[in-house]
Nucleic acid binder design. Structure first.
Lengths: 355, 355
DNA sequence: CGGCCGCGTGTAATCGATTGCATAACTAAT
DNA sequence: ATTAGTTATGCAATCGATTACACGCGGCCG
């Protein structure tokens, strides 16, 4: 019954003008006379015309689409950044393609394909561990595909970058523990080869050093940014006789896993141990106890990264120097951190095995 | 220095064949002779050719892309479904465009645009509240755009649907509370006009009825699927003199908000109250106490929905009748539910105002 | 031996929109 | 009145890939 979807030809026929005029009426209205503009609008309305993006993309070699590549959509940290990106992109008329990165050649090929095949005009990368060489090839090739890296930094790669002040924030988080009187402070690490992990570790170290404390390697617990790793890390904590009185966790998820394991063994936060996390996930204020944590400006980060990328797409020289925006994180003090009990003694050591 | 990106013409020239042959060699290799196939492969390798998707889309009127529209990417429930969708789509060579739905005409127009403009071939909708009429127009129009609805059902709309057994699952969750001896059971509701909310409420009612219990309207607490709404609902709970001894919460997030507020007022789960949630979010096993909850098969749901949609795209008659897959949820018993203290008396009533 | 079939390939039309160039109709300036 | 400039429009080429159709060639059957 219904005809095939109307094309610009149909509109032109109906409005008694050429397709060129229709095209102009729609994308640069100031170039056509008022009367024509009206006739075209009417024709569009009547025919129910919608532009075929494939046709336009082919001609203009741009897809009005950005590719967001991230390591794990499920992670609430990333998903809220993705959300902000989508909003900004939508507001500026761009679509958002998502790509899960789980390494292996396959994924990289896909990433490359999307960009080289004109399906996406630019890349917004939320992961610092993609092969730099590949990226540099993409960025400097014929197409010169714009790339913005967010969250994680690819050291001296020259890409535009939007990130948070990880080192400094970690330092302040740790300082908070020190200010509460803690001297025996441990760290629940992030993934070993992750830039962000390393920065947070560095900040942790700086804070200790500036108060004359030394980092005890046995108090750095291997973690992986997820709850299970925090949970697992607790096992080693529990087996120790000399325990830290406070922990700076690389993120909230691992902090939660860690706390949950501790609680099962009767170690209660913040009475027995103070923990500061990172990210301020949605659950942080509602956890038991509510988590003290460094809040990263996730929405702003996503929005600004998307802004930068789209600016770049619309004018390749928009950003002069390689851009580098650093957003400040903010300490949110809740109840998982407390002044150390009895000025510096280690009472956690005692009542441990009594589940 | 670098030339423009190579096209099929370049490959053809290099391999000394026509573009038609190159196209065939790449997309239906069995149609060309072995020798030619080899020459073309070599030419592709040398020139570094990658297909221009816009060109192909234009000719074939298909973008190899699906559009996923959802109400809130940040919600971990949706983001893990999105994750599963993306994996399935990737495996079958499809890209995934995401679209945040926040109603208002603008969003709907965008949704329509993506589909009508040949940027996406099909729609995977994770929200039951989109205007049915619009959808039906899309589905029956010229293009006959395939649509699969997941998670939420659009009642008698005839769309293909993949969802979980909400009514039954809610009934079983409630039954679990009844089995533990609870008789005074409340419900923390989902959003008022949401299909899923209503189904869960229905299941809740069924379970009560089949045990001869009556639903007390004042024990149905308004909620909104998020933590803040759960937190807010607790205020009314606390103000009551006759309280339920157990709550079935429409989802984990609201359950967590609710519990967190209660705890601030000294009401401890599960001693003072039992709570069963819904979804089995990542944090559920690590909350304090670990949450008893109905686990929805989120990955399966996303995967199957994507499968169905892509089947449909590749062969519009693949699914005969309107498909309707119902996945079973599973009760995961943890520590937020317990046998009622002293068979049915209401001890929560007493120690309330002592923060 | 003629006709038919099938295989491998090339020619050229096609998908839908954009845009450089040409043209026509006016206006303004000399 | 002629030229130059401006504005609105149309013509036709173009973007890159796919595919209907045609052709040539060799083999097979009657």
């Amino acid at each position: 019954m219904e005809r095939k979807t109307p094309t610009i030809q149909d509109v032109a026929r109906f409005a008694n003008v050429s397709t060129a005029t229709v095209s102009r009426a729609l994308s640069s209205p100031e170039k056509v006379s008022e009367g024509t503009r009206a006739r075209v609008s009417e024709a569009v309305r009547v025919t129910g015309y919608t532009l075929n993006q494939a046709g336009r993309s082919l001609r203009q070699r741009s897809a009005k689409t950005i590719l967001v590549a991230l390591p794990d959509i499920r992670n609430p940290f990333f998903s809220s950044i993705l959300d902000a990106i989508e909003r900004e992109a939508a507001a500026r008329g761009y679509g958002v393609l998502v790509l899960n990165l789980y390494f292996g050649h396959e994924t990289i090929r896909r990433l490359q394909d999307f960009l080289l095949s004109n399906r996406a005009d630019g890349l917004l990368l939320l992961d610092g561990s993609v092969d730099t060489h590949l990226l540099q090839t993409l960025a400097s090739q014929a197409g010169a595909i714009p790339i913005v890296v967010a969250c994680e930094e690819i050291p001296n790669s020259g890409f535009h970058t939007v990130l948070t002040d990880n080192v400094d924030a970690a330092e302040r988080a740790t300082q908070h523990l020190i200010d509460l009187g803690h001297r025996r402070i441990g760290h629940l690490l992030g993934p070993e080869h992750n830039v962000v992990s390393r920065e947070r570790l560095a900040g942790f170290g700086k804070a200790l050093a500036s108060s004359g404390l030394v980092m005890a390697p046995e108090w750095n617990f291997r973690g992986n940014f997820d709850m299970e790793s925090g949970f697992a890390a607790a096992a080693r904590f529990l087996s120790m006789t000399e325990r830290p009185t406070a922990i700076f966790a690389a993120n909230d998820e691992s902090a939660i896993g860690f706390l949950s394991a501790l609680r099962q063994h009767g170690i209660i936060c913040p009475q027995d141990i103070s923990v500061v996390g990172f990210d301020d996930l949605g659950v942080a204020p509602h956890y038991v106890p509510p988590l003290t944590t460094m809040r990263q400006p996730r929405e702003a980060l996503g929005r600004m990264a998307a802004e930068a990328l789209i600016d770049l797409l619309e004018d390749p020289d928009a950003l002069g120097m390689p851009l580098r925006i650093v957003l400040r994180s903010e300490l949110v003090v809740r109840e998982s951190t407390a002044r150390i009990a009895r000025g510096g003694t280690d009472r956690t050591r005692t009542d441990s095995h009594s589940s």
